[in-house]
Amino acid sequence: MIEITQEFTDKVFSILADVCDSEEIKANPNMKLFDEGLLDSFGTISLVVEFEQQLNISVPISDFNRDDWATPMMIVQQLAKRK
């Protein structure tokens, strides 16, 4: 568990924006990524790989479920828990 710093949040958001191909995410951290069609199984995998490479946080893909990882903010919190 780490403290959620602005820097960490920005970093996660920029990975998300890249993978989802949408800058909207940064302005709207509570949007439901799967419901909005911005993220799907394929996007999830790219995300998990990027988190591993850029943040050095590994998440088993079967642990990445669509309820606990629904919004950008929730993703930041989940990642912080695993750091």
Binding site: F42, I45, V48, V49, I61, S62
Partner: peptide, 9 residues
């Protein structure tokens, strides 16, 4: 997902 993940990684 497991296949794609392994292949991408």
């Amino acid at each position: 997902m497991r296949f794609v993940y392994t292949a991408v990684k």
